[in-house]
């Protein structure tokens, strides 16, 4: 299959081989991945708790978003780059791992949840910006976001414990 050869060529690329063979590269990338991902999860959770009316209720929703969202993106881009570099070192092993597959699906769901919130619920934000109680759509988005990100962390960690347990 064409995809299979793509995964194999990533693995045998110079970058893939460096990450796989250099004894410091993989754990260092993992550490950076952790630092970026805790920034994503932490800043996302701060916004989610505001949407759920559980914290920062005295602060406007738009201000909370301005304070957290840029850092969520910094963290996300960093986690994506470091995660990508980890991925190329063992691409063929990762793609067939069900925990990896579920994690990718959860990331897409978390992204869709955020997109739907920003396209629809956010349109009327000026009318509820300073309210403790945000519209139901916002609360659902906040709750789903917390659930998705907790699961992303769990499935991410599960990958490390199950690599090599699955074969094509």
């Amino acid at each position: 299959m064409i995809l299979e050869s793509l995964w194999r060529s990533l693995e045998t690329s110079a970058v893939g081989e460096f990450v796989a063979t250099n004894s410091w590269a993989f754990p260092t990338l993992e550490t950076l991945h952790v630092i970026f991902l805790v920034t994503v999860v932490g800043t996302v959770a701060i916004m989610d708790l505001r949407l759920l009316g559980l914290a920062s209720n005295q602060t406007a929703v738009t201000e909370m978003s301005r304070d957290t969202l840029p850092w969520t993106w910094v963290g996300f881009v960093g986690a994506a780059i470091t995660g990508g570099l980890l991925f190329v070192s063992k691409s063929t092993t990762y793609v067939i791992n069900p925990y990896f597959q579920i994690k990718m699906i959860l990331l897409v769901l978390a992204g869709l949840n955020m997109a739907i919130f920003h396209v629809f619920t956010w349109r009327t934000v000026s009318t509820w910006d300073s309210e403790t109680a945000v519209p139901l759509g916002g609360k659902i988005a906040g709750l789903l976001s917390l659930i998705f990100w907790v699961l992303v962390v769990f499935f991410g960690r599960a990958i490390g414990f199950t690599l090599g347990m699955f074969y094509v």
Partner: peptide, 13 residues
């Protein structure tokens, strides 16, 4: 890791 997310991000904010 979730606890690091809470503690580190709180310190960061």
């Amino acid at each position: 890791i979730l606890s690091i997310a809470a503690a580190f991000s709180a310190t960061f904010m």
